[in-house]
Design a protein around this nucleic acid. Structure first.
Lengths: 145, 145
DNA sequence: TATTGTTATACTCTATAACTATA
DNA sequence: TATAGTTATAGAGTATAACAATA
């Protein structure tokens, strides 16, 4: 059996790295756009998909239904999102960006990409893709029964 | 400018992977050993270092002083940790594992390594080391001014 | 005055469960 | 009955600030 060393323990390294990134990003989103990370995810998903139910948003963005519901309420209060009835199922509804919401997204997206670029300073394209695929594999293993 | 896609956005992938891993680990630690992740880190650090001040523990384990203080109190209440006075500085003190604390560590460490192995199923040694180094680089970039 | 560690407080995040309205 | 979404509540994590003891 190999010896346990906290500093080489992958769950530790992953947690520390994710916390550092999340702190920097959420500071930036909150300061510049008044958004929490979950709210930003809802916007990003609707920017890619036009009309979606809360459930589909949650599945797409790894958010539970409570988080989606609260994020959507906050975004609707700011006029960034609107609800439309779902003629096929009255329990549900569609969510969609308003023009203001779309405009905010157009402003955030380049800032987000710049931020990602800063994090990936000195990463080659291959290293970036490799990191993405390693993270997906870890995530999938962590979610396995 | 390249297009933003949430599912290929590294901060998103990192957050989702870290949450999945953290959920699985904290479930396991709480259920099996009654420990929070911060408490586990304090134990792991003291298992590697014998006697340390709260401040040094915080630096070593990326924990703020409040978290270290509360974790240490909880662990002392369970008899896993003891305090010794620091003759060089009366404001501080040393923390050290008790025999019970050491015994608990000896029980957790193999379980932690097994859990890490599960997460790294199908990872080669090179991939594991690469992931560690990519995570360190991202963390360092995120903490840069 | 500055620093170590503790306590108080609050805000975010996450998870559980109860509720409503529809199916 | 079961499901989509909302609301209430609580626990864990994290951050700021005030405090006591010591330097």
């Amino acid at each position: 059996m190999s010896e346990l060393r906290l500093h080489r323990f992958i769950p530790y390294r992953l947690s520390v790295a994710a916390n550092a990134v999340s702190r920097r990003i959420s500071d930036s989103y909150r300061r510049r756009f008044g958004l929490k990370i979950a709210e930003w995810r809802v916007i990003a998903i609707l920017a890619e998909n036009e009309r979606m139910t809360p459930q589909d948003i949650g599945n797409k963005g790894e958010l539970d239904k409570i988080t989606v519901s609260r994020s959507a309420t906050a975004l609707m209060d700011r006029g960034l999102l609107l609800q439309q009835r779902n003629p096929e199922d009255g329990r549900s509804h569609f969510l969609q960006l308003t023009p203001d919401g779309r405009a905010l997204y157009e402003e955030i997206a380049p800032a987000a990409l710049r931020l990602e670029q800063e994090l990936l300073t000195c990463f080659s394209e291959e290293e970036r893709d490799l990191l993405e695929s390693l993270l997906r594999r870890i995530e999938s293993a962590a979610n396995s029964p």
